[in-house]
């Protein structure tokens, strides 16, 4: 009888044979998939907890300005370079179409990096590591980040934010 026809009476019966074995296997695999996430949450080092606070764009801008004034160590192409205190707060502000300031971090130290946007949504994509986080206007998104490798890393915007989207490039330096 085909799948287009009414099934014969008594069609409701338990699976058997390979079908039953497969369902059992698939169910076990789904259990593995499910348990991996809480396992990594407690044991793994990379987690996105979504820690965030409401903030107005003007409020965030003011905090970033204060942060830059306190930690500025230089400038590159008109963008301030800052060196935040290990263990402390660091800010990156996204707007159409730039990231500011440039963070200078120390390898192995942990920072609370605050991300927010003045205008549209943006995407914080750290290359070449390929770590990606959403940046929202109105939300102060806090990443507790520990750079474990040295070098210059590029922030690429990966949420569409208008015509200049692909030119929105920022920088993080780890030494």
């Amino acid at each position: 009888m085909s799948s287009l026809l009414v099934p014969a009476r008594g069609w409701f019966r338990a699976p058997s044979g390979h079908e039953r074995t497969w369902i059992g296997l698939a169910l076990c695999w789904c259990l593995v998939l499910t348990l991996m996430m809480p396992f990594w949450h407690f044991r793994g080092k990379q987690n996105s907890r979504g820690e965030a606070y409401l903030v107005t764009p003007a409020g965030f801008q003011a905090r970033v300005d204060k942060f830059i004034a306190a930690t500025k160590v230089g400038e590159q192409n008109g963008i301030p370079v800052v060196s935040p205190a290990p263990g402390g707060d660091a800010y990156v502000l996204a707007r159409m179409w730039s990231w500011s300031p440039i963070l200078k971090l120390r390898q192995g130290e942990t920072y609370r990096v605050h991300l927010s946007s003045l205008d549209l949504q943006h995407g914080f994509s750290l290359q070449p590591l390929n770590m990606n986080f959403q940046v929202m206007p109105g939300y102060d998104h806090v990443l507790t980040l520990t750079p474990t490798s040295k070098g210059t890393f590029t922030i690429v915007c990966n949420e569409f934010c208008g015509i200049g989207h692909s030119t929105m490039i920022g920088k993080i330096i780890v030494e």
């Binding site: 497969w22 369902i23 698939a26 169910l27 695999w29 789904c30 259990l31 998939l33 499910t34 996430m37 809480p38 949450h41 987690n47 996105s48 907890r49 979504g50 820690e51 965030a52 991300l115 990606n132 986080f133 959403q134 929202m136 939300y139 102060d140 998104h141 806090v142």
Partner: peptide
């Protein structure tokens, strides 16, 4: 999953659609 303002518990619970049973359906 990498958005602000949504906690890990909510993300994990909803990601697995409460235990990947829709994935099970596709595997069936």
């Amino acid at each position: 999953l990498v958005d602000p303002g949504i906690g890990a518990t909510w993300k994990i619970w909803n990601t697995s659609y409460a235990m990947y049973l829709a994935v099970l359906a596709s595997m069936i």
